[in-house]
Design a protein around this nucleic acid. Structure first.
Length: 476
DNA sequence: ATGTTC
């Protein structure tokens, strides 16, 4: 993207001045280098979102932004229901509540050094991964409704994990306003055997070692120390979320037309927040969020079982679980005062600062852990939300490294097998059913995650706490 | 992301 098209506000903040049909400006948080590497389509998509009815303050892009369906991935936009605001399925993303959960272990890098291969095999065997993968949880069309209303709470009640896990999940693991009756039977059918599976694409299960502490005080309070082994799970709502997205995209395209909403492009299909389709989507989406949280909870249980087989004394607890594809009703202070807004975060992580009532007591004075997944060969980061992010981005930060290359280009550039070998040489064991998937996910196809999080920090969105490097990565 | 183009 040409930075000449933007007004530079500071080293890490750039503005698209309102023009044409834009209701609000666009704001991109990134360094000049990151923006130059961004596709021009990010500019178009931030601008297009700014044209939607009822959008407030600005249409935002995070430092990891890249082209997506309708909204860019790394996009944040809030809508006011009192001003004709809308909800958009493309503004949430197909993988509803895709997110990251990071687990503490009581292990250090030394503890796992001699059993790394066994551990990799145990995790690979025990946690189903890959396109269309099915798991051990078998649901009926009746019982799946309990997953969709109960979320991770359903999983714990059915023996997958501990009650105390729930406190460390956004929404305590259960979105209360989920409406399973607004989810199609087709979407439910696709999920009957997929709870407790990782999926494909950029989803992964990683064993990581903490290699750098940026903020010792917060790290200690989060339970993070150099040399600690952590385990991170990156996945979402599988076939169910995807089908909800597909279903509502269609009905929203029709509805927007009949409601007279002037769509900048078809992919931005949306519905007014006070319309039947808008409300139905919010209920279905919340059910999708519950499905994703249940999924990560069941996987956590499987991780505990797999790790305990190799290391019987292992003790695994949650650090945090946060989604990065959602639309949530939140109170924010804007120009008009304190308002109840619907905040879309697509490839953007909630990053609430200290004092937020939704945080578990251990983190209340510090802020929310912001879990940033990297790539197989590089690093992941844990940041902490700031008070300032509320003003800057409705309390949001980046979600990962962000692609710089299409999946197709990546498969032309790299061979899956050589990526696996190269990473093995660097101390990362990759286990995957799909070498093609590994090639698509080659670290070189992504931006530099260290630069992305540094930019997020310098923009004021969240502060770095610790960096984790992968030692085992199970890919879909 | 996705029963990887209903």
């Amino acid at each position: 993207m040409d930075t000449n098209r933007l007004t530079r506000i500071s080293k890490n903040e750039w503005r698209i001045e309102p023009h044409g049909k834009m209701n609000v400006p666009g704001i991109i948080y990134a360094t000049a280098e990151l923006i130059e590497a961004m596709d021009d389509k990010v500019f178009d998509q931030v601008r297009n979102v700014a044209q939607l009815p009822g959008i407030v303050q600005a249409s935002y892009a995070m430092p990891d932004a890249h082209w997506g369906y309708g909204f860019c991935i790394g996009g944040v936009a809030a809508f006011d229901p009192d001003k004709g605001g809308v909800v958009s399925a493309g503004g949430v993303g197909f993988d509803i509540a895709c997110g990251v959960r990071t687990l503490h272990t009581n292990l250090t890098a030394e503890d796992i050094a001699s059993v790394r291969k066994e551990l990799a095999e145990a995790l690979f065997r025990h946690i189903p991964a890959g396109v269309g993968s099915t798991g051990k949880v078998k649901l009926s069309m009746h019982s799946i409704d309990d997953v969709l209303t109960g979320g991770a709470k359903w999983a714990v009640e059915h023996g997958y994990g501990l009650t105390d896990d729930l406190r460390f999940i956004e929404e305590n693991g259960c979105m209360p306003d989920a409406d399973q009756s607004k989810v199609s039977d087709h979407a439910k059918k696709r999920q009957l055997e997929q709870v407790g599976t990782l999926g494909s694409g950029n989803h992964y299960l990683e064993v990581q070692v903490v290699d750098k502490i940026y903020d010792p005080k917060t790290a200690k309070a989060f339970g993070i120390h150099e040399g600690d082994v952590k385990i991170s799970i990156h996945c979402g709502s599988r076939g169910l979320g995807h089908q909800i997205g597909t279903d509502y995209l269609k009905s929203m395209a029709t509805a927007a037309n009949s409601m007279g909403i002037d769509l900048p492009e078809r992919e931005l299909a949306c519905a007014r927040l006070d319309s039947p389709i808008g409300l139905d989507y919010l209920g279905a989406m919340a059910a999708g969020v519950n499905c994703a949280m249940a999924n990560r909870q069941v996987i956590t249980h499987l991780v505990r079982q797999a790790v305990e087989k190799v290391l019987p004394k292992a003790n695994i607890r949650l650090l945090y679980d946060v989604s990065h594809n959602t639309c949530k009703r939140e109170k924010h202070t804007i120009q008009d005062g304190k308002k109840s807004l619907y905040v879309h975060r697509k490839g953007a992580t909630r990053a609430f600062g200290p004092g937020d009532p939704s945080l578990p007591r251990e983190y209340k004075d510090l802020g929310q852990p912001v879990l940033i997944g990297g790539t197989m060969g590089t690093a992941s980061h844990i940041l902490v939300g700031t008070e300032k992010s509320r003003e800057l981005s409705f309390g949001s930060a980046c979600h990962g490294a962000g692609r710089t290359m299409s999946r197709r280009s990546a498969t032309k550039r790299w061979q899956g097998k050589s990526v696996v070998n190269q990473l093995a040489g660097e101390g990362v064991l990759i286990r995957s059913k799909s070498l093609r998937g590994v090639a698509e996910e080659a670290p070189g196809a992504y931006k530099d995650v260290d630069a992305v999080v540094e930019s997020a920090q310098n923009a004021g969105l969240a502060n770095r706490v610790a960096r984790l490097v992968p030692v085992i990565c199970v890919k879909g």
